[in-house]
Design a binder for these strands. Structure first.
Lengths: 158, 158
DNA sequence: ATAAATTTAGACTTTATTGTCTAAATCAAT
DNA sequence: ATTGATTTAGACAATAAAGTCTAAATTTAT
């Protein structure tokens, strides 16, 4: 697991990037996403529901259903996904776990950690998933390549 | 819990900082540490054993036993504690969980994350626990103050 | 209307982490 | 030697996170 996000959150970010990479197709079936990203189908289902409630994605039920981005890809940042899934507390709190650590009673690494947090916030806020997927040359090639070393052809979670 | 370290790791860092802050006293009883830091006694015991195996601390059994730093406080960095407890993988791997993300096949935030990682590495490597506890005006006052809002006097884990 | 495809819901299982409890081993002081 | 204080060991429990399974609800297409 990432040092930073829960696995649910990782999956959510991956799925939204995948949707962005396939625009303007839509909607995309959950099974397409879970197959492409090797994410357990029903697990991803719950994550997508969370993102739906938060407006990050829109779901369409029934035959020919699926998911699409909730708004323009340029208007969705990673932070929106993280907030929806891991909540607000992910960048609050002392990195060493001291309960009352703050600017007035800082823990030993408080100042250093603050700088790192700023960098991370920039990473999460400033780039939209539209930009992120476009930078990679668009489309879904980058995601496919990220799995090519492991399971070249096999589909799972069927 | 921290966004970054396991709770075990948080406790380990806190405990080592506490030892550094009380130098040159030694050894310090486990119960002193767990009381001061509100850490479950036997849980901390296992963490200290892990740190002992890694040479970060030295234990003394029996009456008048306790723990002391395994070497000069200037020679111990947070990274040493993290490596001992959370292992090597904590800063490896893709922050989005893509299994083959690397410089040649980067995920969308690979480059941005790399910069953040560098900042965090500096934080963890460059400052020794000696410096960190000294910067705070020495001694353990900073740690006491970090709990003063909660349980002013009560001792737990007895 | 019916059937097929899909999302939604919720119970359940598995696994990892965190925390608790009891007892044994070790050492210092008397 | 005995006692008391302490670390060490390991079984166990509680909680949270991750993953699986079955069935219901919804929608499109025929």
């Amino acid at each position: 697991m990432s040092v930073f996000f829960s696995r649910s959150c990782e999956y959510g970010i991956q799925a939204v990037l995948y949707l962005a990479s396939r625009e303007p197709e839509s909607p995309i079936h959950l099974r397409d996403i879970s197959n492409a990203l090797r994410i357990p189908h029903h697990f991803l289902s719950k994550i997508m529901q969370t993102l739906e409630r938060d407006g990050v994605v829109i779901s369409h039920k029934g035959a020919n259903g699926g998911f699409e981005l909730g708004r323009d890809a340029k208007e969705i940042s990673i932070i929106n996904i993280v907030r929806a899934i891991d909540g607000e507390a992910f960048l609050n709190g002392c990195v060493l776990g001291f309960p009352s650590c703050d600017d007035t009673a800082p823990c030993p690494v408080h100042t250093l950690w603050k700088k790192s947090k700023e960098n991370i916030s920039v990473m999460l806020e400033k780039s939209s998933v539209g930009e992120l997927s476009a930078e990679l040359g668009g489309k879904l090639e980058f995601i496919k390549s990220l799995y090519s070393h492991n399971n070249p052809t096999k589909e799972i979670n069927v």
